[in-house]
Design a protein around this nucleic acid. Structure first.
Lengths: 266, 266
DNA sequence: CAATCCATTCCGAATAATGGAATCCGATTT
DNA sequence: AAATCGGATTCCATTATTCGGAATGGATTG
């Protein structure tokens, strides 16, 4: 069942009472500004009465909250959950010291991310200048096809599953170099699988590039990556590539520890 | 309906398909370590078959994840949601500059928290030494009866609602000074309502005390507080009390801004 | 003041959740 | 290696919940 999810086959998603409720939360989460009921109606193909009840249930569970102007935003109960989802995450826990070491070795920002459906969700971040508020990054999601972590994660998946997932993608061009078709992405995934290294060549944010290496749980039900990110004006591509061994070793070390801590006989 | 929630009457909670699913998540969230299916069974009074399906649904929605050893932890999808729940929270957004100002005035740690059911959930924190990982605090929950933010929030509720909520509390002694009965708590809430200031006299953590002032959304469907927290060895009670005007003014300023930004005609 | 537009509630019909019983799987014992 | 055992998982008839068209309510607009 966990294997199913990693197979990129989310057939079960959006079905069932729970799935529909989560789809509503997704809609609110993806919106830039608080949505009003009418906005929800046009975003979600449900009869008004049905949608209204679903929203009411979400509100009374504290997953959604209504502003006095009848707009909706995600509820604080989600923060309560997330606090635990983060601190209790064994993947993150195991990776933590290795991320710190990688940061020490490179001096640049280090990320840990995992694949969730079609997106990469960032679990942790280590950077020198902590001036930027940290949680602005933790839990953030980015497309998997234009980030180092995302492409590395895809390469960690069983090939079949990765192909199935790629088929479900819709590509949006973020920069000049963004990969915008499935075959190019699949080709690059094959490369990453061979070399154990993924690059983001300013494919998501102009002026930002990164190098990443895949990590995965023993059964590959959870895949992700570690990455080193840097501004291209300060760190040349060659220098970034020079960290390949470091990054690969870090990923390998995390995989080992995960195997030990989460292995079948842990 | 939002009024219902603030009334401390969570009659609807735990009912319905969604409520039961969230109850499972709560159980996992409250546990210290990852729970196995057997642990869930004894924590949740549901037939095995029913519980198993509920858990399966949560897993296939990404709200729960299974480790290879069949233990469960909260899923990354919750982090995705929380990222938005935090950044999109208008309460937090409005309060942010005021928290910074209060921190500048006092030099001590400033918190923003809101009441969620019987607990206080922290939305934001400003402190000088950012060495401690920030998200270790954001989203964290504490009992409402032994924290400055919690007691102030109770005082911001309509009296009836606060009484109903207090009736549902079960008191646990955390320190020597923890309030452990309803009548003492209600008496203190009455004081807070008069003075506009709540104190935590080392009632939650030994050696830590704080001063707080209530804030609320226009319709009081959401109540919370700002607080200044300090170690008692360094900051005497008298000095803490000396910040009362500052804290009250900050809370008032937030209330005003909320009124403007979230008012009925916003 | 009527008209209009949404949000909200109602309630019979449709659907999904329920849970006792049977089965399966893997660990421990003989 | 076979038997045994305890919990996890699946099955499926029953039951409870959700669904959604239609009616109602409330507020803003012309």
């Amino acid at each position: 069942m966990s294997a199913e999810r990693a197979s990129g086959d989310r057939a079960g998603s959006g079905t069932g009472t729970l799935g529909k409720a989560m789809a509503v939360l997704d809609t609110v989460a993806r919106a830039e500004r608080p949505l009003r009921f009418r906005d929800l109606r046009e975003a979600i193909p449900q009869p008004a009465a049905t949608l209204h009840r679903q929203v009411s249930n979400l509100v009374s569970e504290g997953l959604l909250q209504v502003n006095p102007d009848h707009s909706y935003q995600l509820g604080v109960r989600l923060l309560r959950f997330a606090s635990n989802a983060w601190s209790g995450n064994r993947f993150r826990e195991v990776a933590e010291p290795h991320l710190a070491a990688l940061h020490a070795a490179t001096g640049e920002t280090v990320h840990l991310g995992v694949l969730h459906d079609l997106e990469v969700v960032y679990l942790d971040k280590v950077e020198s200048r902590q001036s930027v508020r940290m949680h602005s990054q933790i839990g953030n999601a980015s497309p998997c096809y234009c980030t180092g972590v995302g492409k590395a994660a895809l390469a960690a998946m069983p090939m079949q599953a990765a192909q199935a997932l790629v088929r479900r993608l819709t590509f949006r061009r973020h920069t000049e170099t963004t990969i915008t078709d499935a075959s190019a992405l699949l080709a690059e995934i094959a490369d990453i699988r061979r070399t154990g290294i993924a690059f983001d060549r300013e494919e998501h944010e102009p002026g930002i590039h990164c190098i990443a290496a895949p990590i995965h749980s023993p059964d590959r039900s959870l895949v992700g990556a570690v990455s080193v990110t840097a501004p291209s004006y300060r760190i040349a591509m060659a220098q970034l590539a020079g960290w390949a061994d470091e990054v690969r070793r870090t990923a390998q070390a995390i995989n080992n520890d995960i195997e030990i801590r989460l292995g079948p006989r842990a």
